[in-house]
Nucleic acid binder design. Structure first.
Lengths: 212, 212
DNA sequence: TGTGACATGGGGCGATCGGCTCATTTCTGA
DNA sequence: TCAGAAATGAGCCGATCGCCCCATGTCACA
């Protein structure tokens, strides 16, 4: 039976390349989404067998989109694609319900195999990531404490990444500078960062915030 | 006659997709490069008609690679690919000798057309970029001052992006903190940034430095 | 009915940062 | 050969930052 795939990536070029290559290998492309929100909507409409989802997308990032797809339509599997090899992002993706996690630096054949295995109920992870995943699992075992950035913290973080200073963030959010500093302190702790620059870099890699 | 293309992109997935799609349209893929340095070497070896070069690549970024390709083999045209729509990057790319500039959010047909036109000696720019390019030209007319980040400044910037403080950067580069601060001041001016966080974000978007 | 997480604040302190002016040396390109 | 850019460095100062201490109110969940 033919596997029906929903492609979700903000770069049309990559989507077209994937569509052609996957169709050649006998997959059927049910639809294409250019952002996370569209991916969620189209997944519900077309109920494909699997969604091939980019991590970094506008409007709604891939991890959050995966969470919503899995909530709305649990029978639809999600395989994630990423540029960044970060164990934390992998962990976030897996927790969000992804059945697979691929680095963009892999071949189309590997993608095809991952999609097939995902539909078969298996979880696939790029070999490059296997080692770092083990570390992550150990970390989670030893420390069940989930370092989840709250919504407010995320707002602060995004404004910081947009180039705003503490006083400016305070003004924009209608809170005191002290509160902003408190949020930042919490963010530093959760992201294991020492200052705002480290925090922004780390958050971007984790897919929590975006630069564009 | 067949147009011979060198693909330079660090994501194998995208390369494979492009190879397939372009070969289908009658192009010949002379070789594939996974980083800027490889692109320069392979361009000299294979002298393709045109190099399709990603802006952000490891080892050597696309803009610098373009500069070297054009220096070593002026008959080889370069068409750049980018994720970010930033007029400054476009300006840097054109100054580096690129014959074309495409956003990754365009179709394979557009890529094919751009490659053909580039070989014909024409310069192609994604329509999305046309407007911002006009602004850039105006800016360059009014202010012929070239804001080019120097090698030393780039080193400082990269270390800052890696999460190092001023004292740490000074230690790593065997220079005084004062000199680091001087470089940073220069960087802020050139990137129109106010602090290190803004500078890092802007540099990443310009493709000057990388987070990975 | 607590208990804990979240969001909101205050004060203080030392370190760091960014702006300012200035000087020296080296090297390259016109 | 000479101007200018690049890289190095100094001192000063005010602003900001990051890290401590702490308190309050809300709200959810057990």
């Amino acid at each position: 039976m033919t596997i029906r795939v929903l492609l979700a990536d903000d770069h049309r070029m990559l989507r077209e390349g994937l569509r052609r290559s996957l169709e050649e290998r006998g997959f059927e492309i049910a639809a294409e989404a250019a952002d996370g929100d569209e991916a969620v909507t189209l997944a519900a409409q077309h109920t494909p067998d699997v969604v091939l989802m980019d991590v970094s997308m506008p409007v709604l990032d891939g991890v959050e989109a995966t969470r919503r797809v899995r909530e709305a339509t649990p029978e639809v599997r999600v395989v994630m694609l990423t540029m960044h090899v970060d164990p934390d992002v992998v962990a976030r993706a897996i927790r969000a319900g992804a059945s697979g996690y691929l680095v963009k630096d892999c071949s189309i054949d590997e993608v095809a195999e991952a999609l097939t295995l995902a539909c078969d109920g298996q979880t696939v992870i790029s070999p490059h990531l296997a080692a770092s995943m083990l570390d992550e699992v150990r970390r989670l075992d030893g420390d069940p404490h989930e370092e989840v950035i709250t919504k407010r913290e995320e707002e602060v973080l995004q404004l910081i990444a947009d180039g705003h200073s503490t006083p400016e963030v305070a003004e924009k959010l209608y809170i005191s500078q002290k509160t902003v500093k408190n949020h930042l302190a919490s963010i530093y702790h959760k992201l294991d960062a020492r200052d705002r620059t480290q925090a922004v870099v780390r958050a971007v890699r984790l897919g929590i915030i975006h630069l564009d």
